[in-house]
């Protein structure tokens, strides 16, 4: 167990005019830990995710990130250049819609290789080799490397997006409804894959989902959001087996049993 968190979120609030996006969110995330943010549409979970990942600037609060040199940096006080560098090396962001996270008109290999080229890899053969390896790890066969994601199914696109994000060995990955829009069997495969990769690579992850089964399978810890507030926060098993808040109880009791 490492002694320092990877991420410290303190007092993060985001207002859209007088409307609350999210309010006064505090938590810490440790290396290797997966945090699920759950709640219904409009509860502020995506706003929070975007704030933490600096895709959106919050109205108040700070997010500190432990850089590879061990020093904490306040993300909102970093230069944009540093932040963008962080985002394409040490972080990943998996969008719900793969088209938002992929370049749909370049090949799968180039999609995976882009981050490598962005950090200065200039050897085509090696880039391609790494891309092939990653396609394999996300269960895309090597002979699809030159196909564009337009020719891929939804599940394959999502897996490609994951490979594209993980190729630089990030330490923190953000996922926004990673299984949204996929049919159930494809979901299961993706979840299993993500779970395996997160375990193998010791990734820390923040996963936004409205699907409690996804949260149960992937996350160690869970935050329940409602109307922009974190109303319940704890061990995933605890929140799901012994929900304390009325809203959480409602949420848990609404799961369809198969």
């Amino acid at each position: 167990m490492s002694d320092n968190p990877l991420l410290k979120v303190s007092g993060v609030s985001k207002f859209y005019g007088s409307r609350i996006g999210c309010k006064d969110v505090n938590f810490e995330l440790w290396p290797g830990e997966v945090l699920a943010i759950v709640g219904e549409s409009g509860s502020g979970k995506t706003t929070l995710l975007n704030c933490i990942s600096t895709r959106l600037l919050p109205t108040a609060g700070s997010v500190e990130y432990r850089m590879r040199d061990g020093n904490f940096r306040d993300l909102y006080h970093m230069s944009e250049a540093e932040r963008r560098f962080l985002m394409r090396t040490d972080w990943g962001f998996v969008h719900q819609n793969p088209a938002d996270g992929l370049r749909m008109t370049v090949s799968a290999g180039a999609n995976v290789g882009e981050r490598l080229m962005a950090v200065g890899d200039r050897h085509y053969g090696k880039i391609r080799e790494t891309a092939t390896d990653w396609l394999g790890r996300v269960e895309i066969s090597a002979d699809r490397i030159d196909d564009q994601p337009r020719a891929f199914s939804g599940g394959m696109r999502q897996r490609l997006q994951i490979a594209r994000n993980l190729v630089t060995g990030p330490r923190l990955v953000f996922m926004d409804e990673p299984t949204g829009g996929l049919d159930v069997s494809v979901q299961a495969r993706l979840l299993d894959l993500v779970r395996g990769l997160v375990n193998d690579l010791g990734l820390a992850a923040i996963v936004v989902t409205h699907d409690l089964a996804v949260a149960r399978l992937l996350s160690h810890r869970m935050m329940v959001m409602k109307d922009g507030f974190v109303i319940e926060h704890g061990l995933t098993d605890r929140v799901l087996d012994d929900p304390r808040e009325p809203y959480t109880q409602l949420l848990v009791s609404s799961i369809l049993q198969v």
């Binding site: 394409r88 370049r103 370049v106 090949s107 290999g109 180039a110 290789g113 882009e114 981050r115 080229m117 962005a118 950090v119 200039r122 085509y124 880039i127 391609r128």
Partner: peptide, 10 residues
């Protein structure tokens, strides 16, 4: 400029 090399890669 990583994107520039993406083009060449393609």
């Amino acid at each position: 400029y990583g994107l520039m090399h993406v083009k060449l890669y393609e």
